[in-house]
Simulated scan of single mutants.
Amino acid sequence: MDDHFSPVSERLHNRRFAVAGNAHGVSGAGTVFHYYVDGHVISSTYQGGRIRTGNQVGHVTGPDTIELLFQCLTTDGEMLAGWSRGTVGVDDAGRTTLAFVWGWLSGATGGGESSYVEVCD
């Protein structure tokens, strides 16, 4: 792995994130994402709110950028899949933030922007 990918790994690996904003998506209040990073490979699981279960797979594309594919099963039984491109940042409190542009590939149409903030225990 290139050293310039290290900041993303340090900011994401084994950390959990809650939705800060997602006006056009299915994840929302109560949805928590748990990320893992191995080299430049990213994976995550998520659930809560309207999401019964979901997962993501992707890769680090730069010092603060990532690309993901996601899929989920909603509490209403919908199966959805999509893509996202994101930026990893830090807020004023030192928590990791994620900002995405995303779109649906299956099960729905359209897309939007969403943001997430690290859950600190």
Rank of each mutant, 00 (worst) to 15 (best):
T97N: 06
F100P: 03
F100L: 12
G86S: 10
T65G: 05
D91Q: 09
G82H: 12
G94L: 10
A99I: 02
S84F: 02
A108I: 02
A108S: 12
F70C: 02
T87W: 00
L73E: 15
A99F: 08
F100K: 11
W83P: 00
G89M: 11
S106N: 06
L69S: 10
E113Y: 02
T75V: 15
A108D: 14
T87C: 04
F70K: 02
F100E: 12
G89Q: 14
W83R: 14
P63L: 06
V90I: 13
G107N: 05
T74L: 01
M79W: 00
G89R: 12
T97K: 04
G89P: 06
L98N: 07
G89E: 09
T96H: 11
E113F: 03
D91F: 01
L68S: 01
D91C: 10
L69A: 11
R85D: 01
I66Y: 01
S84M: 14
G62V: 08
L69H: 13
L68G: 01
G107H: 01
F70E: 07
I66F: 00
G82Q: 07
L80H: 01
A81W: 07
D91M: 08
A81M: 12
A93H: 09
E78K: 14
G86Q: 10
W104T: 04
E78R: 14
C72W: 02
I66C: 02
T75A: 05
R85C: 13
G86T: 07
L80N: 09
P63Y: 07
G62P: 00
T96G: 15
V90W: 07
E78Q: 15
I66W: 00
G110P: 02
D64S: 10
G103Q: 13
E78T: 04
D92E: 15
E78I: 03
D91G: 11
T75Q: 09
W104M: 07
G77H: 06
L73K: 05
T74K: 03
G82L: 05
W83H: 13
L98V: 05
P63N: 10
G107K: 07
G111K: 02
D91I: 09
T75I: 09
E67Q: 12
G107C: 01
G103M: 05
T87Q: 14
G82V: 06
G94M: 11
G111D: 04
I66P: 01
L73V: 12
T109D: 14
L98G: 06
D64K: 00
W83F: 13
A99M: 09
G86A: 08
S106M: 04
V101A: 15
G77Y: 04
G111R: 03
E113N: 11
G82K: 03
G86D: 10
G89N: 11
G111Q: 03
F100D: 14
G86R: 04
L98R: 04
E78W: 07
